[in-house]
């Protein structure tokens, strides 16, 4: 089901007038949107458009300077990530972050134990907790066979799946995914996004994701929000956004058939490897620096 209109009745999440600046740089100026339950919404835009900042404000990693974010009728603006998670928002990171000293199973158990509020239990062993549920979650994301593997030994594509398993472990009402397919091979991208879409449908989970790969966006999103220089320049169905003149101007510099051209850098992307070598960098709340797959004509303005 695709929505042609940006207006949503009964949204799961509403963002109103979000603002954030770093020093003198306005990363995000006046961004408002809402998301219907079960909807899959993509945020796109050139480098420095404010995607990651917007995204991190919803997740709680970045505090908005102004504006509010309402989840299911309650404000979550300015809350720390852990509190937002408890309200039912799971997320994945641009560079997948998992607990590398634990097995795949333990990673998921960790999230489930937290979901049950047992983090301060000092007596009962963690290893035996929530096992069946953890197996079920791993099964859902298709990595049940990896359950006992230490996370540090996994291929990057599998790490991304483990992270997805962690993020959906508590059955959140909303899932945030920051560049879910970055660093993955094209085949892996499709599989992962199909999986995410299926989980969203089954669990009635709303999904908000940022993405550089336009194929992924147009194949899976049912609504696309386009940011440029910290403002929304388009908001609507993939079809409508694709035809939008402003969007074409920002992205393609007016060139026809730019989409095909834009896909070419993909082949340069390494397979099964993160684009940056240092995973710890993902923690920094910075405007993203990953190469813009579709933006050969115009680089980031910020």
């Amino acid at each position: 089901m695709r929505r042609e209109s940006a207006l949503v009745s009964n949204p799961v999440l509403t963002a109103i007038g979000l603002k954030k600046s770093y020093g003198g740089v306005h990363a995000v100026e006046d961004v408002s949107f809402d998301i219907a339950p079960g909807a899959i919404m993509a945020i796109i835009g050139p480098n420095g458009a404010g995607k990651s900042t917007t995204f991190n404000m919803v997740g709680g990693q970045v505090k908005p300077d102004a504006g509010s974010i309402i989840l299911n009728g309650r404000s979550i603006s300015g809350l720390p990530p852990r509190a937002i998670w408890r309200r039912g928002v799971g997320r994945t990171f641009q560079i997948a972050a998992t607990f590398a000293s634990m097995t795949v199973m333990e990673n998921v158990q960790m999230a489930l134990i937290s979901h049950r509020g047992d983090l301060f239990d000092m007596i009962r062993r963690a290893g035996g907790r929530c096992r069946d549920e953890a197996i079920a979650v791993l099964d859902r994301v298709g990595i049940k066979n990896l359950a006992e593997r230490p996370c540090a030994t996994l291929a990057y594509g599998d790490v991304k799946r483990v992270e997805l398993a962690i993020a959906v472990a508590g059955d959140p009402i909303m899932l945030l995914m920051d560049e879910p397919t970055a660093g993955m091979a094209p085949g892996e991208r499709r599989d992962l996004m199909n999986l995410v879409a299926r989980i969203a449908r089954e669990k009635k989970m709303a999904i908000l994701f940022t993405e550089h790969d336009m194929d992924t966006v147009f194949a899976h999103a049912d609504r696309v929000l386009v940011l440029d220089r910290g403002r929304i320049i388009a908001d609507g169905s993939p079809g409508a956004v694709r035809e939008n003149a402003d969007v074409r101007a920002v992205y393609l510099g007016g060139a026809k058939n730019g989409r095909r051209k834009a896909e070419q850098p993909e082949s340069r992307q390494p397979k099964k490897k993160p684009p940056e070598t240092d995973p710890s960098e993902s923690k920094a709340a910075k405007p993203d620096t990953a190469n813009a797959v579709i933006s050969p004509a115009k680089s980031g303005p910020v």
């Binding site: 990693q61 990530p81 998670w85 799971g90 972050a97």
Partner: peptide
């Protein structure tokens, strides 16, 4: 292991 990840699953 991953402070941001831990925070994002409710760990203070």
């Amino acid at each position: 292991d991953a402070p941001a990840r831990a925070d994002a699953i409710g760990i203070h």
